[in-house]
Design a protein around this nucleic acid. Structure first.
Length: 259
DNA sequence: ATGGCTTATTGTATAAGA
């Protein structure tokens, strides 16, 4: 790691086609080193490489039409770019990784799961098991590793606006939280919780029911850091500003600074 | 209130998100 401080962020943009102006404005106001995007919802041929280059960012993208799609934007060179989870046969574009500044950056869009007793929930469980297997090997290869993205899991009750109403539901169910615990047991630390944070801090709010205005949200977007990086973390914040704009994504960026 | 919103689709209603 040569560049310090080093700032990384994650943001589920819910269609980069719609959100590109917000992303470009945000990067202008927050000239960070690395931004990971989820739900670009476009094929590689539609990805706005030129606009991002003009803004000073290189980009790698694993996209598909309509659904999913992940990208890493970086001011610096990216090497060893890898798509997907090795060992998992998966059509859905949910993982992209690259090495930047001596750090393995793994951008993930974890399966939503829809409802606890659904086929999609079982896919979420299988997918997470494969992710964990793969990550254990990646961590051995890359001691400096950051796993960031939309996890679609609120790890604790304090990450949910109304835990009583959500008991057992998707995003908070015990099996999902067990999977999150298995990820942290690999030696990955939730950087947001390394610091004192405001109560009721969330990264996603439902578009419906005036969710954002009432702060009816969830903290489901996370930046996890490996043991080697834990003590170098300087701050982790949720930037709610983009959620206040016209036609926002339902998620807002999470930003980590490594000293 | 099992959705009151937003996105994408070669659409004109449906699926999916979380």
């Amino acid at each position: 790691m040569k560049l310090t401080p080093f700032k990384l962020a994650t943001w589920n943009v819910n269609s980069l086609n719609v959100r590109l102006p917000h992303v470009l404005d945000w990067l202008r106001d927050n000239p960070i080193d690395v931004l990971c995007l989820q739900e670009t919802k476009q094929e590689d041929s539609k990805f706005p490489y030129a606009d991002l280059k003009e803004a000073g960012y290189k980009a790698v993208h694993a996209g598909q039409k309509t659904y999913n799609g992940v990208a890493i934007l970086s001011k610096h060179d990216m090497t060893d770019v890898e798509h997907g989870i090795a060992g998992l046969d998966d059509e859905q574009k949910r993982v992209i990784a690259a090495t930047i500044n001596g750090i393995r950056v793994v951008c993930v869009y974890i399966v939503n799961g829809q409802a606890v007793d659904s086929e999609k929930y079982e896919y979420k469980m299988r997918w997470l098991a494969a992710l964990i297997d793969w990550l254990s090997g990646e961590l051995k290869k890359h001691p400096n590793l950051v796993l960031l993205g939309d996890y679609n899991i609120a790890p604790e009750d304090r990450d949910c606006h109304d835990p009583a109403a959500w008991i057992g539901q998707i995003l908070v169910s015990p099996r999902e939280r067990e999977m999150f615990a298995k990820i942290t047991a690999l030696g990955l630390h939730d950087s947001f919780r390394l610091f004192e944070q405001p109560e009721k801090s969330f990264s996603w709010w439902d578009y419906r029911m005036m969710g954002f205005r009432r702060n009816f949200g969830m903290r489901i977007d996370h930046i996890l850091v490996s043991d080697a990086l834990k003590n170098k973390c300087e701050s982790c914040i949720i930037d709610k500003a983009p959620r206040k704009l016209e036609r926002p994504s339902d998620h807002t960026p999470v930003v980590l600074t490594i000293a």
